[in-house]
Amino acid sequence: MKPLKSPKITAASQRRYSEKEYQDMPDESVWESFCLGNEATFSYIYKNFASDLFSYGFQFCGDSHLVEDCMQNVFIYLRKKRENLGQVKSIKSYLFKCIQYEIIKRLKERGVLVDTNEYQYKKAFSIALSPETIMIESESQEQKRMMINQALDQLTSRQRQALILLYEEEMSYSEIADIMGFSEVKSARKLVYRALASLKEVINPS
């Protein structure tokens, strides 16, 4: 097999950065270096985000083969188009959008997903509280934890997705709005607040 169309050899595409240098670079610069054809930067991106992409993608379908396949398609596509890709402020949320788009497209083709108001995969974005958590100082901690877990299961999958993005993936509301297809940031806030309101009833019943 021939390698992908080799990018132009320029100083930028050949420059070697250390791990530390990459970590200090803003996402825009890392992305720009990738777009200029720097293969070391591509490796860095793959190494850093492959595992996150996989666990995020898995939430839509629970099918690791499909997610792996979609990851491969996404990376091939990005490399093919690298010269024409625009600026990217956050590589992680950009890649999340790509993998999500690819997976949803495939699920729709199979007819197991509708236009995404609600993911039909029952376990989509299941959240659990880690068991070591100390919620309140009482004997019924374990029971409380179970109740919260149940309340989390009752949320809509989109609400859980927003919570995961907010807490686990540490994304801002504007990134969440972007990934979840809201034109306004306040819609993402609303989604989260509605979820929190239902959780609060279980955590601190009034």
């Binding site: 097999m1 390698p3 992908l4 898995f58 990376f75 093919k80 974005f125 659990a128």
Partner: peptide, 27 residues
């Protein structure tokens, strides 16, 4: 403490395979 309930790891095999396939993919 809120985290994914189902969070499988990307297997080593898949990690390596995807990377290799991507690098070798035909234009």
């Amino acid at each position: 403490s809120m985290t994914y309930k189902n969070k499988p790891e990307l297997s080593n095999k898949a990690y390596v395979e995807i990377f290799e396939n991507v690098l070798k993919s035909e234009p």
